[in-house]
Amino acid sequence: MKIAETKQETRKIVKEWKKQGLSVGLVPTMGFLHEGHESLILKSAAENDKTVVSVFVNPMQFGKNEDLEDYPRDFERDCSICRKAGADLIFHPCPQEMYPADFFSYVNVDRITEGLCGSDRPGHFRGVCTVVSKLFHITTPDRAYFGQKDAQQLAVIKKMVQDLDFDLQVIGCPTVREADGLAKSSRNTYLSPEERKAAAVIHRTLEYAKEAISQGQRDAGELKKELVSRIEKEPLAEIDYIELVDGELLQPVKVLKKPLLIAAAVRVGKTRLIDNYFWE
């Protein structure tokens, strides 16, 4: 497994692979890898001849008073996970490599970025789309792998790829969970033991939604009211949002029908956690 810190070196390696007719998969990450990232790398390694993992804490997608400086980092551990999962190359640039002083270009996707996390984090998806488009250009993958836990991000990237004619396939992969259902996240390390126990309420609530739909609930307003009530019963949990939206353009719905995304962002202590249920 190779490690490249520059765009030039990364391009050189990938071009050599492409000359040999090899397929390339990309797994974009911000590091501090866990089993969720590992599952993406394993899938890419199974479906492509070569796999690139980017490890880059992207400052552009963090807003004011967010956790950029405190975001967990452990590059040595990341390398070990990548190597065991079958990665061939880690692209690990510094911020100056990705955003030199004369950088003035950005990628925006409208409409589907306006609600959910986009309403609470202005500029976040501009940062995501800009860095992901750069990674696509630098690594020229045939396939790129993203976790379904970040459902809005996945939808936004798919739309960007469609609208801007990127020649690659975006693949969403199932959320990897803890034993009690909590979605794996690098930010889970922020939780105290008491908060960690309380955080399980998010998955339990989404499981209730799944069951309610299977039993015929179709009134979005009534279901949302019940979901809010269940999370509010947990004293350590504070809701940022719970929304029921269509699964493509992420617009609010009144009547539940496929494809449907139920997305939640909940703060437990100071930690903001997201999760979702997709009905399709």
Rank of each mutant, 00 (worst) to 15 (best):
V109Q: 00
P59F: 13
K197G: 11
R196F: 04
Y190I: 06
Y71V: 01
E222H: 03
G247P: 04
D67L: 12
C94M: 03
E178N: 09
D70W: 00
R143N: 09
G181F: 06
D167A: 11
L249P: 05
Q61T: 12
G31F: 04
G118L: 02
G216W: 14
K64E: 11
A85V: 13
F104H: 12
T271I: 02
P174W: 07
Q152N: 01
R272S: 04
C117H: 12
T205H: 03
E222D: 03
P174G: 08
N276K: 01
S80D: 15
S39Y: 10
F75Q: 15
R187D: 00
E5C: 14
M1I: 13
M1V: 11
V132D: 06
F104R: 08
K270T: 11
S192G: 03
A179H: 15
A87T: 15
L249V: 05
E35S: 04
Y106D: 13
C79A: 15
P141G: 11
S214I: 02
V109S: 01
T10C: 08
Q8G: 10
P122A: 05
L182R: 15
T189I: 05
M30T: 03
F166R: 07
K258R: 14
K134M: 01
V128R: 06
I3S: 12
P72C: 08
I138Q: 05
L260P: 08
L256V: 03
L244P: 10
V268L: 08
K224H: 08
G216Y: 14
L273I: 06
S186N: 01
E226I: 06
G216P: 15
D70C: 02
Q61W: 12
R218S: 06
C117L: 13
L206C: 08
G21P: 15
A199M: 07
F75R: 15
D88W: 04
L68D: 12
E38S: 06
G115I: 15
V53R: 11
Y277A: 11
K254A: 10
K270L: 08
T113Y: 12
D275S: 06
A264D: 10
L42H: 12
R204A: 14
E47W: 07
E207V: 11
D275G: 04
Q153R: 13
E66D: 08
V253M: 13
S186Q: 02
V109M: 02
D219A: 06
S185M: 04
S23G: 04
C173G: 05
K159G: 00
E178L: 07
E194S: 07
P95N: 03
Q217E: 12
L227H: 02
F125G: 13
L89N: 06
E280R: 12
F278V: 13
V201Q: 05
I262E: 11
T51Q: 06
V201G: 10
G31W: 03
A200F: 15
E211Q: 10
N188Y: 08
R111T: 10
D74M: 01
V268M: 07
